[in-house]
Amino acid sequence: MKGVSLDLNALSGNWESVNLNPTVIIYRDGEQYMLSIIHINETSRQASPATYEIQEDEDGYFINYNLKRTAISYDVKLDVLHLSSLGD
């Protein structure tokens, strides 16, 4: 993904998982883009959202998820958002 700039505005919205991973929402909050991950507890069916600021450096966009850098990439041909530690 290096050298390819993502258009976060175009990626804004709800992203549903193809492999039972959590739902992801990308949205703008003022000048900053945010990414929310919504986990659903299988037993209680309760949703637990967590929100992260999308950051950018020379390697691209990422969030700090569970104290780890989680890269954000997008496959234009497949229309798939990928979070490096969470799946597609």
Rank of each mutant, 00 (worst) to 15 (best):
E53T: 15
K77A: 15
Y33V: 14
N64M: 14
Q46Y: 05
M34V: 15
E16R: 03
A71T: 15
E31C: 03
T23M: 11
F62P: 04
W15A: 13
S17M: 07
V18A: 11
G30Q: 01
T51Q: 09
L67E: 11
D79G: 02
L67N: 12
G60E: 04
F62I: 05
I63G: 01
P22E: 02
M1C: 07
Y61S: 07
L20M: 08
N19L: 09
E31F: 05
L11K: 05
I37M: 09
Y33H: 14
Y74W: 07
G3L: 07
I63C: 02
I63V: 15
E58A: 08
I54V: 14
A71G: 12
D57K: 03
L6H: 07
V76M: 08
H39G: 06
S73W: 03
Q32K: 03
L6P: 07
E42S: 10
L81M: 11
S17G: 15
T70P: 02
N21T: 14
D59I: 11
E58Q: 09
Y61F: 13
S44W: 03
D59E: 12
D7C: 11
S36H: 00
A50K: 06
L11V: 13
V4Y: 02
L35K: 02
D75Q: 06
L6E: 10
E58C: 06
I26P: 05
A47K: 11
S73N: 12
A10W: 00
V4D: 00
N64H: 05
N66S: 12
G13S: 05
I54S: 08
E58D: 12
T51L: 07
S48P: 00
G60Q: 07
I38S: 10
S73Q: 07
D7N: 15
S84Q: 02
Y61M: 06
A71H: 05
I38Y: 04
